[in-house]
């Protein structure tokens, strides 16, 4: 049977039996989304490749522990985000745990006036085509603490629901909502700063 026509659970079942074609199909489906998440988490392309490779190998070697009552993508993203966050913790690139701390304000505590995002008077499509803005968003994301970055990327890049994000990051639903809200607020502040 052609693997491309199978859903994730069927592929996972075949992978459990050691079928290389199933592993290959799962890898092809998810290597880009997982890499997109991890590279934005660790901010280093070569390192991200190593971590994604590690995540896939962990997932494939532990494929028998995958519970089909969950989404395969959630399970895979959980492994990948754990690998990335473990790395960030080890490297001490960031100082706050993924389980979060109250950090509403900017470290320097300055008050900032409300600044308009460039989209205010633009059509959303034109706005999103703005390459400079995209680069600013990428830059701003790197300034967010990893727990905020993780929830925002999983929500917006991968389109996971709040519940799925909570499941992937093994966080309470309320914490995910808080991280999303605060992370976006910080992101908007950073974008405004970059514009000044």
């Amino acid at each position: 049977m052609e693997c491309g026509s199978l859903d994730d659970h069927e592929l996972a079942a075949q992978a459990c039996e050691g079928r290389e074609a199933a592993f290959r199909e799962l890898l092809e489906r998810y290597e880009r989304p997982v890499f997109s998440l991890v590279v934005r988490m660790v901010r280093d392309r070569a390192l991200a490749e190593d971590l994604v490779q590690e995540a896939f190998i962990r997932a494939f070697r532990g494929i028998r522990s995958f519970d089909p009552s969950y989404k395969f993508s959630s399970w895979l993203f959980r492994i990948a985000s754990n690998v990335a966050i473990d790395h960030l913790r080890r490297r001490k690139l960031d100082t706050v745990s993924i389980h979060g701390a109250d950090h509403r304000g900017h470290p320097d505590g300055r008050e900032r006036p409300d600044l308009d995002l460039p989209a205010r008077d633009q059509d959303p499509e034109r706005f999103t085509e703005n390459r400079e803005l995209r680069e600013r968003i990428e830059a701003a994301l790197t300034h967010l603490r990893p727990e905020y970055r993780a929830v925002i990327l999983l929500r917006h890049l991968e389109g996971h629901s709040y519940e799925e994000v909570a499941e992937i990051l093994e966080l309470p639903l309320g914490t995910v909502k808080t991280h999303l809200h605060r992370g976006r607020a910080e992101l908007r502040e950073l974008l405004r700063e970059f514009e000044r």
Partner: peptide, 25 residues
């Protein structure tokens, strides 16, 4: 404002790893 930010985030491009990574896995 929020809608514009959401759109911009959702439009971030998907990034591809090198083919070497797939072969390594």
């Amino acid at each position: 404002d929020w809608s514009a930010l959401f759109h911009a985030l959702e439009e971030l491009p998907e990034l591809a790893p090198s083919p070497r990574m797939r072969e390594n896995v």
